[in-house]
Simulated scan of single mutants.
Amino acid sequence: MADWTDTHFTRDFGVTYPIVQGPFGGGISRVELTAAVSDAGGLGSFGAHHLHPSELDATLAQLSAATDRPFAVNLWVPLPGEPRTLDPRTHARQSDALAPWFRRARIDAPAYRAPAPPDFEAQVEVLLERRPAVFSFVFGIPEPDILAECRRRGIRTLGAATHLDEGLALRDAGVNAVVASGYEAGGHRPAFLRPAEDSIATGPLTAQLSAALDIPVIAAGGIADGRGIASALMLGADAVQVGTAFLATDQSGAPEAHKQMLRSPRARYTALTTAFSGRLARGIRNEFLDEHANADLPPYPQQLWLTAPIKAAAAHSGDAELLALWSGQGAPLLSERRDATEVFEHLVAGTTRTLRSAACR
Rank of each mutant, 00 (worst) to 15 (best):
A220N: 12
A220P: 14
A220K: 14
A220L: 12
A220Y: 10
G221N: 06
G222W: 00
I223T: 02
I223M: 02
I223R: 04
I223W: 07
A224H: 11
A224M: 08
A224N: 07
D225Y: 08
D225C: 08
G226E: 04
G226R: 03
R227H: 11
R227K: 07
G228R: 05
G228W: 10
A230W: 00
A232G: 08
A232E: 12
A232P: 11
L233G: 01
L233R: 01
L233T: 03
L233Q: 02
M234D: 03
A237S: 05
D238A: 05
D238R: 00
V240R: 09
V240C: 07
Q241A: 06
V242F: 05
V242S: 01
V242E: 01
G243P: 10
G243S: 06
A245G: 04
A245Y: 08
F246D: 08
F246G: 09
F246H: 07
L247C: 11
L247P: 08
L247E: 07
A248G: 05
T249H: 12
D250V: 14
D250W: 05
Q251W: 06
S252A: 15
G253V: 09
G253F: 11
P255G: 11
E256K: 12
E256T: 10
K259Q: 15
K259M: 13
Q260L: 14
M261V: 13
M261T: 14
M261Q: 15
M261K: 13
L262M: 15
R263D: 10
R266W: 14
A267I: 00
R268P: 00
Y269D: 15
Y269C: 08
Y269N: 14
Y269M: 11
Y269L: 11
T270R: 14
T270Y: 15
A271L: 12
L272T: 11
L272K: 13
T273G: 04
T273W: 05
T274L: 09
T274N: 10
F276I: 09
F276K: 10
S277E: 15
S277C: 14
G278W: 00
R279T: 08
